[in-house]
């Protein structure tokens, strides 16, 4: 199983009661964001994580420019660098050279450095967008459930419970495997990306939904909401002006912690052959391809594995930092 969203429960305890503290701090005249930023600034490890995340995002965005600089395109073949009998790169360490910084792929001789850069695009894209999907659905439904209560709450809560108990990976693989090759004007890899984003996001929303619901539930009864209500504020006003600002902190924490999990899920799906389609580069797909050569060309396996590791680690470090910064109790 890919790392399920267990981080959440840590976070749950951490962000369970942010609102009152937010209110307290207001008395001191500093916004929650300001406090959080001050704390985050002191957290060196988190800052390093954040820097790596930023770097990765930039690398993903500017991958074409960087590969143009190194002169290696991700789908350009160099069969002359491959031993035809064994399909593995000539030369030591998977063909690492000045020209091919991380060596070349077996069989085709494509530049691994270029493919890793392009693979970052897939990972980051799916990681972010699916987290956003989860946040949108989770916030809307969680708020509805918490604010209106009653049968709506019961229904949404049951759906969330049920989704949490769903064999998710199994469902995601099944769904992707029956998707047609073209959908909504997209083809091939485009469809896979879209489906992955939607499906991973969909299975992620209950985690957000639960927290939001809990928050709203506790906030709903607080005096200042009561006050707003008695002053004749409409539901919409209360929801958007009074409740949402208090949800920003827990949602931010969740989202940062959800992105690495989603990146792992994307890699796992590509590893299992239901991710993006070749020749599109993806770290998981590279790993799955590399398994055939783990003895004859181990570098080909290690490089994408380490890429996944660094990325996920950076996001986790940064996410931990954000959580600690937003955690008013400061237990950590």
């Amino acid at each position: 199983m890919t790392a399920p969203l267990h981080e959440e429960s840590t976070a749950k305890s951490a962000v369970a009661e942010p609102a009152p503290s937010g209110a307290e701090k207001k008395i001191e005249g500093r916004s929650l964001g300001r406090i959080a930023w001050d704390r985050l600034k002191r957290d060196k490890v988190a800052l390093i994580g954040g820097a790596v995340v930023l770097l990765l995002v930039l690398v993903a965005i500017f991958a074409p420019a960087i590969t143009a600089l190194t002169g290696q395109m991700p789908n350009q073949r160099h069969e002359d660098l491959i031993d035809p009998l064994f399909s593995t790169p000539k030369g030591a360490l998977g063909g690492i050279s000045g020209e091919h910084l991380l060596g070349v792929e077996p069989v085709s001789g494509r530049d691994i450095f270029a493919r890793i850069l392009y693979g970052a695009r897939v990972s980051i894209l799916v990681g972010f967008l699916s987290a956003i999907v989860a946040v949108i659905i989770g916030t809307i439904l969680g708020t509805l459930a918490g604010y209106f209560g009653g049968w709506l709450d019961a229904l949404i809560s049951r759906v969330m419970d049920m989704l949490l108990a769903f064999p998710q990976l199994l469902f995601i693989i099944s769904l992707i495997s029956v998707m047609p090759n073209s959908l909504l004007g997209l083809t091939g890899t485009g469809v896979r990306l879209l489906v992955m984003i939607l499906v991973i996001g969909f299975f992620g929303w209950p985690y957000i939904g639960r927290i939001v619901r809990g928050q709203v539930l506790s906030l709903r009864e607080r005096e200042y909401i009561e006050a707003a209500r008695s002053l004749g504020a409409g539901r919409r006003y209360i929801l958007s002006k009074e409740l949402l600002p208090n949800l920003v902190a827990p949602i931010t924490v969740y989202m940062t912690l959800m992105i690495p999990t989603n990146i792992l899920t994307e890699a796992a799906l590509s590893f299992l052959g239901v991710g993006v389609k070749p020749p599109t580069a993806s770290w998981g797909a590279m790993l799955s391809d590399a398994v055939q050569y783990y003895e004859s060309d181990p570098m080909y396996m290690i490089i994408p594995g380490v890429a996944i590791f660094i990325t996920v680690l950076a996001f986790n470090l940064f996410g931990d930092g954000v959580r600690d910064a937003l955690d008013p109790k400061g237990t950590r």
Binding site: R77, E79, L85, S87
Partner: peptide
């Protein structure tokens, strides 16, 4: 054809 042959696993495979 040579490139295809390499892609399929070389002259033996």
């Amino acid at each position: 054809h040579k490139s295809v042959q390499t892609a399929r696993g070389g002259p033996m495979a």
